[in-house]
């Protein structure tokens, strides 16, 4: 049983504070969702947790079972048990997924020889073309293939906690179900703790969260049970000083590869 604990996390970019004291606790096997209007700091939270260089942390702490992550470089956070499925997975020309994961396994003392079989097995579970496993990461992948690949990596790496940053964008309904089922299985079979950042309710229909948090202007303004998203859909974020509402369809940014747009 592990705990990811975020306490009074403050961070920004270019001198502008975006996260203004975030508190969140995720335990093994739990699914937490973070919703919020555009610009509330959802993606900043994801990258600050993973340690992306351009963000400055100005206060607070992030621990897994008491081990402080904020002073660690990104790759050591990964080895400490944290995984980030990116909203916009980055293309890495000339580097194949199997090659990268073999290096990841080797660096953490795991048997790199297992990577090939694990990848093939996990690709089959979400319907990712196995050809893509030995091709350059995310290069010429469709939006759906990118997200499926993130899910496959999550399953192969088996972290203790996963931050899913809008893993639902770019997915058609079938793939959304496959991805959600795979993540759900990992929470029950492997006690994966999940922090799912999303702008859409449709992910939450598939990946039923235990707790839903609403992030507005860099703070968690309310938390509730699985019914909170439905309520937000009716009332919007107005109660929290925002007139935006959770999207039932895709927002403009992901429109290009979202069939629901």
């Amino acid at each position: 049983m592990s705990t990811l604990e975020i306490r009074d996390l403050r961070a920004g970019i270019g001198g502008k504070e975006i996260l203004r004291g975030v508190d969140l606790t995720v335990a093994s096997g739990e699914v937490h969702a973070v919703m919020g209007p555009n610009g509330s700091g959802k993606s900043t939270l994801a990258h600050v947790l993973m340690g992306r260089a351009e963000y400055e942390v100005t206060g607070g702490s992030v621990t897994i079972d008491g081990v402080e992550l904020l002073g660690l470089p990104t790759w050591k956070r990964a080895h400490a048990g944290l995984f980030l499925a990116m909203q916009y997975p980055i293309e890495v020309p000339g580097v194949a997924l199997d090659e990268a994961l073999r290096e990841s396994f080797a660096a953490s003392g795991r048997d790199a020889g297992e990577v090939g079989d694990l990848l093939v097995k996990e690709a089959a579970r979400v319907g990712l073309d196995p050809e893509l496993l030995s091709r350059a990461i995310n290069v010429e992948f469709s939006g759906g293939e990118k997200k499926a690949s993130e899910t496959v990596q999550l399953a192969v790496i088996r972290p203790r906690f996963a931050v899913l940053d809008e893993i639902d964008s770019g997915l058609d309904l079938d793939l959304l179900r496959a991805v959600s089922r795979r993540v759900e299985a990992q929470t029950s079979e492997d006690a994966l703790g999940v922090l799912a950042i999303t702008h859409y309710n449709r992910l939450l229909h598939e990946l039923r969260p235990d707790t839903v948090h609403v992030l507005v202007k860099g703070r968690i303004v309310t938390s509730g049970g699985p019914d909170l998203p439905e309520e937000l859909e009716r009332t919007g974020y107005a109660a929290y000083g925002e007139d935006d509402a959770p999207a039932t369809s895709a927002p403009g940014r992901a429109a290009a590869d979202d069939p629901f747009a």
């Binding site: 990104t74 980055i90 293309e91 580097v95 990268a100 660096a107």
Partner: peptide, 19 residues
């Protein structure tokens, strides 16, 4: 690119070699 690989647990000098 380096960040992406590091986020998967690849150490920075290995990430640079792969890239």
């Amino acid at each position: 690119q380096r960040y992406y690989l590091e986020a998967r647990g690849v150490p920075p000098e290995v990430a640079e070699r792969l890239i």
